Amino acid sequence: MWPSRDVETSQGDASWNYLRFFPNVKPYVYMHPTADGLHELVILDGLRSKVVSNSDDPPNSFHSRDLFSPHSTIQDAWKYVGRMDDRVTLVNGEKVLPLPIEGRIRDHPLVAEAVVFGAQRDFPGLLVFKGPRAQELKDVEFVDNIWPAVEDANSRAEGFSRISKEAIIPIASGVSYLRTDKGTIIRAKVYLAFEREISTLYESIQGQASGIERPDLPCLTRELLSICRKDFNLDIETVDVDLLNVGMDSLKAAHFSNAIRTRFYIESEEK
């Protein structure tokens, strides 16, 4: 049922890690387009080795939830990239598909691995494991070097899926991370292994520090509108506008909230 690598590829074939289906299997395979150029492997009714069905779309089919990306030039050649179950669900219910983001960052020559995190958080972040060529770089230099790749990944992602520079956690070269036999990350275990670093990042961005400014209401209104325009490029003229309708996503909202807390005095609810 599974695709197999073409054993007749020539020596030096750079596409050795792309899978091709055997001719007797190919008629029973449907690569269902999902998001960001990925496809889910669906086995159609009629394949003798298929013993179970889990969908009637198409009838009596089996949706594997395995995701593949097509080769850019070789027809019917597919690269395994992960599972649909790998999606990261934010606290507001939005589902981030990390695979395209991670794949783009992983292609950078200074990067060994990239892992998107953010389950039940306001916005996603990124663990980036330094490759051997980056072991001498300081964290700030490393992030600056890979930032164009992150921006490229962000340009293809939905607003709530985008990674901010402040939400990147560099991991030293040589630090191990848990992988499957196929070489893909074991997401849940990576999150557990770096739980402290992840929590520290969110605490830093969403810190509870209170500022000292106590402007009156008209001044506060002007300052909040100014923050929206200058810091988040939101073209608004009044506080009565629905921010979601003018481009405020979960990531911007988190930074906006932090900007308010760190600048303006907020009276504690504790008595």
Rank of each mutant, 00 (worst) to 15 (best):
Glu197Val: 13
Trp147Gly: 10
Ile185His: 08
Asn154Val: 03
Leu97His: 00
Asp144Cys: 01
Ala114Gly: 11
Ser4Asn: 14
Leu251Arg: 15
Leu244Ala: 08
Ser4Leu: 15
Asp122Lys: 09
Ile227Gly: 10
Tyr80Asp: 11
Asp122Leu: 08
Cys228Met: 09
Val143Glu: 08
Cys219Leu: 11
Val140Ser: 14
Phe160Met: 05
Pro132Phe: 01
Leu41Lys: 02
Ser176Phe: 14
Phe22Gly: 07
Glu166Val: 01
Arg263Ala: 03
Glu151Thr: 09
Ser210Met: 07
Asp76Glu: 11
Pro218Cys: 01
Arg196Ser: 11
Gly118Ile: 12
Ile198Ser: 03
Gly12Arg: 14
Ile74Trp: 04
Asn245Trp: 03
Ser15Asn: 09
Lys79Ile: 00
Ser72Asp: 12
Phe68Asn: 10
Thr238Leu: 04
Arg48Val: 11
Gly93Glu: 06
Pro215Thr: 07
Asn245Asp: 14
Ile212His: 09
Glu94Pro: 04
Tyr28Asn: 15
Leu192Met: 13
Ser155Asn: 10
Ile43Met: 15
Asp107Pro: 02
Val115Glu: 01
Tyr18Phe: 13
Ser64Lys: 05
Ile205Trp: 07
Ile171Trp: 03
Glu197Lys: 15
Gly46Tyr: 09
Lys165Ile: 13
Ser210Pro: 09
Ala259Leu: 03
Arg65Pro: 02
Thr221Val: 09
Thr238Met: 05
Tyr265Gln: 02
Ile171Thr: 08
Asn258Met: 09
Glu94Lys: 12
Arg214Trp: 07
Asp240Phe: 11
Tyr177Arg: 15
Gly93Tyr: 11
Asp86Trp: 15
Arg229Gly: 03
Tyr202Ser: 06
Val96Asn: 01
Glu213Gln: 12
Arg196Tyr: 10
Thr9Pro: 01
Ala157Lys: 08
His32Ile: 05
Glu158Lys: 11
Asn24Gln: 10
Pro218Phe: 05
Phe264Pro: 05
Glu223Val: 09
Glu223Tyr: 04
Glu166Trp: 00
Leu90Arg: 03
Leu44Phe: 13
Glu270Leu: 14
Ala119Ser: 14
Glu113Ala: 13
Trp147Thr: 07
Asp235Arg: 10
Asp249Gly: 14
Lys130Val: 15
Tyr28Phe: 15
Ala153Gln: 05
Cys219Ala: 12
Asn92Ser: 05
Glu223Ala: 13
Thr34Asp: 04
Lys26Val: 04
Pro124Asp: 09
Leu225Ala: 03
Val7Met: 10
Ala112Trp: 00
Pro58His: 02
His63Tyr: 07
Ile171Glu: 06
Leu234Gly: 00
Pro109His: 00
Pro109Ala: 01
Pro100Trp: 12
Ala254Arg: 02
Ile185Asn: 07
Ala35Cys: 08
Ser176Arg: 15
Leu44Thr: 12
Arg65Ser: 10
Glu267Tyr: 04
Glu203Gly: 15
Tyr30Thr: 06
Val51Gln: 13
Asp242Phe: 02
Tyr28His: 15
Phe142Cys: 00
Pro109Glu: 05
Asp36Trp: 08
Met1Asp: 13
Phe117Trp: 02
Val7Glu: 12
Ile212Glu: 04
Glu195Tyr: 11
Gln208Ala: 14
Lys130Trp: 09
Ala112Thr: 02
Asn145Phe: 07
